[in-house]
Design a protein around this nucleic acid. Structure first.
Lengths: 106, 106
DNA sequence: TTGACGTATCGTAATATTCCGATATATTGA
DNA sequence: TCAATATATCGGAATATTACGATACGTCAA
């Protein structure tokens, strides 16, 4: 061992779920979705317009994010509103923006 | 717009680099590597043993992490020690561990 | 009920990632 | 120099992800 410190507990297997969810997060469109939804709720069409992709593609991205429990949705008439369902996302997004969007901070 | 709040600045394109780096991070072995290296420096062989993968596979993972500037390396004789090179990694890893390893916190 | 609109699902071709073995390079000691 | 050890690189098969089109579903207004 290179240091006198003890190895942290855990193993590769403990990170399987984390890796799955990070992989879902690791897409430019999905990061933008999270950034928007941390500020309020949006419909599929609104998000698709912002990201400049077709509605059905947006629907696919939202489904992936829902599968990781990052988002949930509420139907209101013809529209479906998506919103953040995972409290850790705010902190995680702050880290990501702090590292990768340093010039665009408010 | 669904709320009176203003949309956050930026766009999908601003997240391209972030998505690239998160994709690199989104692997069980690589998350474990980061966790270990946040505690001290390790050689390729030590990391490979901990993660139970061949040395050359570990070398590949380390190269990917280096490409994102997450890590750097120092040769000492026959050994190469890897260490964390990105100050944001600690905070990011805290988020990830807080969300996905809640039972294993120290 | 019909048509329009918003959203969701599914198949698939193109592309990217992962894993593995073979081989190459660097360093040390005999 | 040679063999042994530690690390790095590369090619390719297996697998996963992505983007896209076609189509289906749910809701509303006329």
């Amino acid at each position: 061992m290179s240091k006198s410190s003890v190895k942290p507990p855990g193993s590769v297997d403990n990170f399987s779920e984390a890796a799955e969810c990070l992989k879902t997060l690791a897409h430019p469109v999905r990061l933008r979705i999270i950034q928007l939804l941390l500020q309020g709720r949006y419909t599929v069409g609104e998000l698709a317009a912002d990201c400049d992709i077709p509605d059905n593609a947006m629907s696919d991205h939202l489904r992936l994010l829902q599968r990781c429990s990052f988002l949930n949705s509420v139907r209101d008439g013809r529209f479906v509103y998506y919103q953040v369902a995972e409290s850790h996302l705010k902190q995680l997004m702050d880290c990501i923006e702090g590292r990768f969007l340093p010039c665009c901070r408010t």
